[in-house]
């Protein structure tokens, strides 16, 4: 089976400054893979590079066996989507949920808009009432559901999740995590999840990569979180600080 995401020796820079170095990992189809690590270590940057929002990279990258170009591209949009860290910034402030969810359909010329939107809302557990609301009329958790629904509109196989719950309170976090877990089981999705919260990773993922200062220092199965058997000193420190 080809890997859903395959990165080989990836270096990423922003206007000449290198922030990520030598990242190598494969995510199998249907797997849920986590990136954890220090703040500012380049976790979001790796996701952005895969999505095409950080075009200055070198190395090898392929998605479902296809080599990946450097910018965002329209065909990739159908297979790979991203959910951003901040539910306050990732929705257009003057567009209703309906408009936000029709946008991907309009871009790709898909029909049956109304049904698809209703289905997406049902999938993420939002009532029909929300369809014509604006972001400012919704709580953070509801916004994040809309962002997830938008990413699911094009029925991608791969979801890049950048701290999907860090801005949300624990009760909403639990709802979103359950939702993501259910969707993965139902639609056989592949997840690449960034988080700084080890228990969340333990709940959601199969394997975890630990990043610090732009490098991956360890890749471990999620069982490591249960027993604390990490080898790298930074991973141990992170694990200890998380109360493990």
């Amino acid at each position: 089976m080809t890997a859903a995401i395959s990165l080989n020796n990836l270096d990423i820079s922003y206007s000449g400054t290198r922030v990520v170095e030598g990242v190598t990992f494969d995510v199998a189809e249907g797997e849920s893979f986590a990136l954890v690590g220090e703040s500012g270590s380049g976790k979001s940057t790796v996701l952005k590079a895969i999505a095409g929002l950080a075009p200055e990279w070198s190395g090898e990258m392929s998605i479902l066996g296809q080599p990946r170009g450097h910018g965002p591209d329209k065909d990739l949009a159908r297979t790979c989507q991203m959910v951003f860290q901040d539910p306050y910034g990732s929705l257009h402030p003057r567009k209703t949920v309906d408009a936000v969810l029709s946008e991907p359909l309009a871009i790709h010329g898909l029909g049956n808009r109304s049904e698809r939107i209703e289905k997406a809302l049902r999938d993420v557990g939002l009532d029909r009432r929300f369809r014509f609301r604006y972001p400012h009329q919704m709580s953070g958790g509801q916004r994040q559901r809309v962002a997830i629904a938008r990413a699911l509109m094009l029925e991608p196989k791969i979801m890049l999740l950048d701290e999907p719950t860090s801005a949300l309170d624990v009760s909403v976090q639990a709802e979103i995590l359950n939702l993501l877990k259910r969707l993965r089981a139902e639609q056989n999705l592949t997840y690449l999840l960034v988080s700084h919260d080890l228990p969340v990773v333990g709940f959601m993922c199969d394997r975890v990569a630990v990043m610090t200062k732009g490098r991956i220092v360890e890749i471990a199965p999620v069982d490591a979180l249960h027993h604390g058997d990490f080898t790298d000193p930074y991973s141990r420190q992170l694990y200890a600080a998380s109360g493990g």
């Binding site: 999505a51 929002l53 965002p72 159908r78 989507q81 991203m82 951003f84 901040d86 871009i107």
Partner: peptide, 17 residues
């Protein structure tokens, strides 16, 4: 630089759109 602009680009929208 807001994230909703990045999100829309990721959906495949052109600059003009």
């Amino acid at each position: 630089n807001a994230e909703f602009v990045s999100a829309t680009r990721l959906l495949g929208a052109s600059h003009l759109r």
